[in-house]
């Protein structure tokens, strides 16, 4: 079995303990909810947009270390990105988390590469992807809560 340290990397544990952008954005332009009821992971993603750029991104919710760290690093990673760039990053992260050969994808996600180890723990992949699917729902204005279960 894969090493636990591959899953719970120091960076992930740091973001779990001290999540970044863990707040609501008053008057957010975009808001979306994600819910994995079997796990009990819940997240709300807030975005403030300006000129097609994500000016601010924040989140609130509760969940396991993987989902918290994923939401924390995701919001930090998409602030300042254009919509299309955030979409592109979503696809790369998703490929890294779910696809077999992801050597290229892992290189192109920057700091988010610390989540590459999650792929070896199939039951935990949905924890890491929930914030990202919720971000996508916010970017594309989906009203229904999203789930990755």
């Amino acid at each position: 079995m894969s090493d636990l340290r591959e899953l719970y990397q120091q960076t992930i544990l740091d973001h779990h303990r001290k999540p970044r952008n863990f707040r609501a954005i008053a008057g957010a332009d975009r808001t979306a909810h994600g819910d994995n009821p079997l796990c009990g992971d819940r997240i709300t993603v807030y975005l403030r947009m300006g000129n097609g750029v994500i000016k601010d991104a924040a989140w609130e919710g509760s969940g396991c270390a993987i989902s918290r760290a994923s939401a924390s690093m995701m919001t930090a990673g998409v602030i300042g990105k254009r919509n299309a760039e955030a979409d592109e990053l979503f696809h790369r992260v998703h490929a890294m988390l779910t696809e077999e050969s992801n050597g290229d994808a892992a290189r192109d996600v920057g700091k988010l590469a610390v989540f590459a180890g999650v792929r070896e723990f199939p039951s935990r992949v949905k924890c890491a992807t929930l914030p990202w699917h919720t971000l996508e729902a916010a970017l594309h204005g989906t009203a229904e809560p999203v789930t990755t279960e």
Partner: peptide, 10 residues
């Protein structure tokens, strides 16, 4: 302070 699923994985 630790989610049950994290405990389960360990």
């Amino acid at each position: 302070g630790i989610h049950a699923h994290d405990v389960g994985t360990v």
